[in-house]
Write a protein that binds this DNA or RNA. Structure first.
Lengths: 116, 116
DNA sequence: TCTCTATATAGCTATTTACCTATTTACGAT
DNA sequence: ATCGTAAATAGGTAAATAGCTATATAGAGA
């Protein structure tokens, strides 16, 4: 399995995305990460393992705590991959934009038919 | 399941990313998409279904063909999610950069110890 | 209507995933 | 030494996923 695969599939789970969001505010212990979720500690530890294998978090050691911190570097690759498609969605946003403008122009011309 | 979940998990598979890359060059029939892979037609159809549920492709109808075309719009959401972390990886790239520069400076100062 | 081709669907298997509870390990502190 | 707490690991289950072959459907053209 490749790096990009692991990154995207790590991001596919909302719990894991929430964990990353939390870590964006600073490092946390496992129990701190468990707290906001209605999930068991081992389940969170497992999610952390997935994130770790994707290279998205790294672990320290401080007494009996294993602080987790964000490592965003692998997101660069994902961003680059998606970025290659930017022109396509911008195109379609332009089309949407054009469509909306067109509709608004029509609304003006036939103002009497306006709803509401 | 939410949209972003479906988008990221669609992107987690290299076959599906390759299909999207192919579609970036223009629409294609299912058989055209099967050809480059060592996978059966039903397997590709299934991948297309995943992409379709993620909103990443849409299907037409032309005679007995069901042309597949790229719909990049949902990638915008994924890009935006990842984009929120850009500052973190740029930070770490800066650190890497600083590290490299530092090493190079040391190399210069102790030029005689250079290896190779 | 019969046939050919494109694609979808059915039904199967093996693997992976997400969760759980119970237990173990690793420290720190008393 | 033992107690308490943080986190990992073991071991289990149910559901999802990725693949296959075989078959069904839909439309074009003879």
């Amino acid at each position: 399995m490749e790096q990009l695969d692991r990154v995207f599939s790590a991001l596919a789970d909302p719990t894991r995305r929430a964990i990353l969001a939390r870590l964006a505010e600073g490092e946390a212990t496992v129990n701190e990460l468990v707290e906001p979720f209605d999930l068991s500690q081992p389940t969170i530890s497992q999610h952390l393992k997935v994130l770790e294998h994707a290279g998205l978090v790294s672990r320290g050691r401080a007494a009996q705590f294993r602080p987790v911190r964000l490592n965003a570097a692998p997101l660069a690759g994902a961003a680059r991959w998606i970025g290659d498609y930017r022109r396509f969605w911008e195109e379609s946003l332009d089309q949407l934009d054009a469509y909306v403008k067109n509709m608004q122009a029509k609304e003006k011309r036939h103002g009497s038919k306006r709803k509401r």
